[in-house]
Amino acid sequence: MRDVTLLDIFEHRIAQKYLNRSGLAHAIAVAYHAFHLSKEHQLDVDIAAKAGLLHDMGHYTWYKNGKWDYDLYKQNDIHPIKGAERAHKLLIRLGENPIKAKTIALAILFHTDSFLPSNDIVRTPLQQVVKWADEKDEEEGGMHHYRTIEYERAEKSIIRLDKWIDEEYNH
């Protein structure tokens, strides 16, 4: 039994704000990739899918002269730090198990090397799965953040993934 579903997260106003800012279609795609990869590696599918869904909620919009500045983003971004904090706060507020919330936040923190001074971090298997899930959906120049999805389709996708997670938990 899960304390918090993906739908609970998806419907929350804070999640809506940040998922839409960083790309809802990308967030859902990464949640699906994380589910499949975690299943393949015999990890907790619920934790992986939640980390996948929330992995980019720390994004800030880096604009220069009204246009997205990818170089400015690459130079100054700390979205994994901010995202881990936001996700943890949201999950605790929704009633997530504190240990799961911390595990999800750490997977978000280590989903990319973009903010680290070096890329020699040793990840847990779950953290590695979330990193791989994100990389599976990346497009050059950050274009994956600009794909769109209709709200109803997004909601149906989240409900479907929740159902798959419940089925895994009931095996």
Rank of each mutant, 00 (worst) to 15 (best):
M1G: 08
R2D: 00
D3F: 15
L6H: 09
L6P: 05
A15L: 02
Q16L: 04
Y18Q: 00
N20V: 05
L24M: 05
H26R: 10
A27K: 04
V30R: 03
A34S: 12
L37W: 03
K39L: 13
L43F: 15
L43D: 05
L43E: 09
V45L: 11
I47F: 15
A51W: 02
L53V: 04
L54G: 07
L54K: 01
H55Q: 08
D56V: 09
D56N: 06
Y60L: 05
Y63E: 09
Y63F: 06
N65H: 04
W68P: 09
D69S: 10
Y70K: 12
N76S: 12
D77C: 11
D77N: 14
P80R: 13
A84I: 03
R86G: 05
H88G: 06
H88D: 11
K89I: 10
I92L: 12
I99M: 03
I99H: 07
I99N: 06
K100N: 13
A101E: 01
K102G: 11
K102E: 08
I104C: 01
S114D: 14
D120Q: 04
I121H: 02
I121S: 08
V122G: 03
R123E: 10
V130L: 09
V130F: 07
A133H: 10
E135F: 12
D137L: 01
E140W: 15
H144Q: 05
R147M: 08
R147P: 01
T148S: 04
Y151K: 08
E152N: 07
E152G: 02
R153I: 03
R153V: 03
E155A: 11
S157G: 12
I158P: 02
K163P: 09
I165T: 00
E167F: 00
Y169P: 05
H171T: 11
H171Q: 13
